[in-house]
Write a protein that binds this DNA or RNA. Structure first.
Length: 215
DNA sequence: TGCCAGGCCGGGT
DNA sequence: ACCCGGCATGGC
């Protein structure tokens, strides 16, 4: 069976087992952007507290966050952890948004993926996963998001070697699936879902069968 | 109680 | 080109 068929079958099995995942959990594209940084190596429950603080303070707008000072921002996002560094990273993102798009999320969303991605990756604090999360879930661009669960699930199925890079894994999906935003959206969410349940950090489960994928 | 969570950076080899 | 320590809160 081809890789394309295998990936398609994985998707079907996961989709039938878990149903629609309804990602990304946010009200606006801008909120997705903030959440993408806040959730770096952090549980989503802690991120929602930080976002609630910002929402209560009436700061869920580019202009407001651009104007607030980093120390004050850090205190508000404290529940998300790494609050000092994440406050700076949010500021870096806002600086980028104002320098390139006059602070307009709508302008940014309208830009092309091929221009947007390299540009966003120059922002300090935005690595490949955060970048692709913003592009897929906020901007609706066809770019596959890879995360630690994606890696673990694929390794467990011997679909990649342990030394596979982010770009290797991203290309595996993009080269073997139709370029479909809705599919990329749901597939990543499902990989996170199954990964949380079955793929604890190695080597604890090394060699264990990944039950949802068994015939 | 320690381990883990929807990573990334910067300095050292 | 890798490798690793640091960053930090909250749940189980």
């Amino acid at each position: 069976m081809s890789i394309a068929d295998t990936l398609k079958n994985y998707y079907e099995v996961l989709s039938k087992r878990y149903g629609p995942q309804k990602w990304w959990p946010a009200d606006t594209p801008f909120e997705v952007m903030l959440g993408a940084i806040l959730t770096q190596n952090t549980s989503w429950a802690n991120v929602t507290r930080a976002l609630d603080n910002l929402k209560e303070a009436g700061l869920l707008s580019p202009q407001k966050l651009y104007e607030i000072d980093s120390e004050q921002l850090a205190q508000l996002i404290k529940p998300a952890g790494y609050f000092n560094i994440k406050a700076k990273r949010l500021k870096n993102l806002l600086d980028w948004l104002f320098q390139n798009y006059q602070g307009s999320v709508q302008q940014m969303l309208a830009d092309d993926l091929v221009r947007l991605r390299p540009s966003l990756l120059t922002v300090s604090g935005i690595g490949p996963e955060t970048c692709d999360s913003i592009l897929l879930y906020a901007a609706g661009k066809p770019t596959f998001v890879v995360d630690t669960y994606t890696y673990r699930v694929l390794v467990r199925h011997n679909l990649i070697w342990e030394d596979a890079t982010y770009d290797d894994i991203k290309a595996l999906f993009e080269d073997n699936l139709p370029e479909d935003v809705a599919l990329y959206n749901e597939y990543h969410a499902l990989l996170v879902r199954v990964g949380k349940e079955y793929c604890r950090p190695e080597p604890r489960h090394k060699g264990c069968p990944l039950e949802p994928f068994l015939p």
